[in-house]
Design a protein around this nucleic acid. Structure first.
Length: 309
DNA sequence: AATATCGTCAACCGCGGGTCC
DNA sequence: AGGACCCGCGGTTGACGATAT
């Protein structure tokens, strides 16, 4: 059974032979593909136009980069996926020479598993963890199941947000004095009307808060500010990031202390009705420590937590 | 050595959106 | 308005090679 575009012909399916490839290449390079439904007839192929298009786009195009993905490409995929979700075609646009199919396959066969091994939900990039932060009554921010992605924005994500014409940052949300639930960026872009928790429109007031943090930071972090996003990226080897923690690493894990010794604000925003207090946090985390506002940090990024505002 | 299982990836399928008539 | 057609996308399938038993 073929597609309607070529239902009158008998069409071949399955893997392409070198001869078929040659015919398709010749046709497309000399005449262009034009209307794909007419390509098989012009090229003398017993294929449907859709199959020809797919073969060309995913395999025969001269500008394709073959071979395995580099660590940098892998990181880009992770970063963009954090924002866009399974929009493979959009993600592939950030990887010259790669196709959506290739990216999708790589995600499903490789990255997904690495993330799960790290205890991260590959869909949301959040920790799959039972280690929730418990807050006391005087905390004005609902940190239960806080998504990591809200404030966890890498340098590439910033580029994505600034370059991709299909991404628009959410409009400022009105200040709320209610509990604030921070939706994952994934969901924000899936549903632009969703809450649109705008970190830019907020500023955090962390008074005398202390947090103890440990290793495994999935990314840098940053803030949304009105219509722009700025970040404090930090570098970390991808190999290191993707490896599941070893037992002995746990044991050798150093404990760091982060101290917020003054009121800290984010620029350009409205008041953020959040305050933190050391006593509000359950710091019993194994893989990582969820910082106020859903920030993750690790030892190497400690200094970034004392940003100037 | 034979068989089972797993992982990868090319290809297919169905759907939605856009355009044309 | 609505049907036909085309394109592009994401999810899924299945072939095949690698690895484990």
């Amino acid at each position: 059974m073929g597609h309607h575009c070529c239902s009158k012909q008998k069409v071949k399916r399955g893997l392409w032979s070198p001869e078929e490839d040659e015919k398709l290449i010749t046709q497309v390079t000399t005449h262009g593909h034009g209307c794909w439904s007419s390509v098989p007839r012009l090229a003398g192929l017993q294929r449907c136009g859709k199959s020809c298009r797919l073969r060309w786009i995913n395999y025969l195009r001269p500008d394709l980069k073959r071979g395995s993905f580099s660590a940098e490409e892998e990181q880009i995929i992770i970063d963009v996926h954090r924002i866009l979700g399974n929009r493979w075609a959009q993600i592939a646009k950030h990887l010259p020479g790669r196709t959506d199919n290739e990216v999708k396959n790589f995600w499903n066969s490789c990255i997904k598993k690495k993330m799960m091994a790290q205890g991260l939900d590959p869909r949301t990039h959040n920790l799959i963890s039972s280690h929730y932060i418990t807050t006391s009554n005087n905390t004005a921010c609902n940190l239960h199941q806080q998504p990591t992605s809200v404030l966890s924005v890498s340098s590439h994500e910033m580029r994505v947000a600034s370059m991709d014409p299909f991404i628009t940052l959410p409009p400022p949300a009105p200040p709320s004095h209610e509990f604030m639930t921070l939706p994952p960026i994934y969901e924000e872009y899936q549903n632009p009307n969703l809450a649109s928790m705008d970190l830019a429109s907020t500023r955090s007031s962390m008074e005398n808060s202390r947090a103890i943090s440990s290793s495994m930071n999935p990314s840098g972090f940053g803030f949304l500010d009105g219509n722009c996003m700025f970040v404090e990226p930090f570098e970390h080897p991808i190999q290191e990031e993707m490896q599941p923690p070893q037992q002995d690493q746990y044991q050798q894990q150093k404990v760091c202390e982060v101290e917020f010794d003054k009121t800290t604000e984010l620029k350009g925003g409205q008041d953020m009705d959040v305050s933190f207090n050391t006593s509000n946090f359950d710091l019993e985390f194994v893989d990582s420590t969820l910082m106020p506002c859903g920030m993750y940090c690790n030892e190497s990024s400690m200094d970034q937590l004392s940003w100037d505002c």
